[in-house]
Simulated scan of single mutants.
Amino acid sequence: MNDKSPLTAERVRADVAELLGRDPGSIDPEESLLDLGLDSIRIMSLIDRWRAAGATVEYPDLAERPELAHWISVVTGEVAA
C-alpha cells in the first residue's frame, strides 16, 4: 500500500470503468469486477498504469478482493464512497 499515492478514488474508478466500457458511476463499489468482465490481463494493465502514476500495488493485492472499494483503499489509501 502507498499512503502517499497521487491517485484518487475518482481516478481509480474512472480507470476501471474505462477498461470495462462502463460509466464510472454505474459500478457498485462492492460488486466483483471479475463478474463485470475484468480479467487478469486488464488487471495487470491497471497495475502498470497506477505504478506509472506512483502507486505501490501488486497483483495479489487486487486479485484477492476484486471489488472497487477494496482497490481504491489499496491504491490510494482512501475509503471508497
Rank of each mutant, 00 (worst) to 15 (best):
S40W: 05
V57R: 04
G77M: 08
A53E: 15
V79H: 03
V16F: 06
M1C: 09
A52W: 01
R11I: 12
L20E: 03
V74S: 01
A69T: 03
T56Q: 12
I72T: 02
L7D: 03
V74F: 03
N2G: 13
L19P: 00
A69I: 00
G77H: 06
E64T: 13
E31Y: 01
A81G: 15
L36V: 09
D23F: 02
V74W: 00
R22V: 08
S40H: 07
A52Q: 14
A17G: 10
A80R: 02
E58K: 13
E18V: 07
V57G: 06
A80Q: 00
G25E: 15
K4D: 14
D15P: 04
R22F: 01
I41H: 06
D3Q: 11
P29M: 10
V79I: 14
N2M: 10
L20A: 04
M1T: 06
D3E: 12
W50V: 10
V16N: 05
W71E: 00
M44C: 11
E31D: 13
G21N: 10
A9L: 00
R51K: 14
H70E: 02
R65D: 07
R49C: 06
Y59N: 06
R51H: 10
A63L: 11
R65M: 07
K4C: 12
A53I: 04
L20S: 10
E67C: 13
L68K: 00
I27H: 02
S40C: 11
R22S: 10
G54M: 10
D28P: 03
V12M: 05
R65L: 12
H70K: 01
H70G: 03
L38N: 04
W71N: 03
G21A: 07
R13N: 09
I27F: 05
T8W: 03
I27N: 05
S40D: 07
L46V: 12
D61E: 14
E64I: 12
K4E: 14
P60W: 08
A9E: 11
L62I: 08
S26E: 15
V79T: 15
A52E: 15
L62C: 09
T56G: 02
G25D: 14
P66W: 04
L46W: 07
S26F: 04
P24G: 10
N2Q: 09
A9Y: 01
I27G: 02
D28W: 01
V79E: 14
I43W: 07
R11K: 12
E18K: 14
A53D: 15
I41M: 15
R51S: 10
E10R: 12
D48V: 14
P29V: 12
S5I: 05
I47D: 03
R51Q: 14
A14D: 14
W71L: 06
A52Y: 00
L33Q: 06
E67P: 00
V16E: 03
G54C: 08
V75Y: 02
V74Y: 01
T76V: 11
P29D: 03
V57Q: 04
G77W: 09
L19E: 06
M1L: 13
A81T: 07
G37C: 09
G21F: 11
A17Y: 05
A80H: 02
L38Y: 05
T8A: 08
E10H: 10
V16M: 07
Y59H: 11
L68P: 09
L38E: 02
A9M: 01
S73K: 11
D23W: 07
A80V: 03
A81L: 05
S45K: 13
K4L: 15
L19K: 13
L7F: 08
S45C: 08
P6M: 11
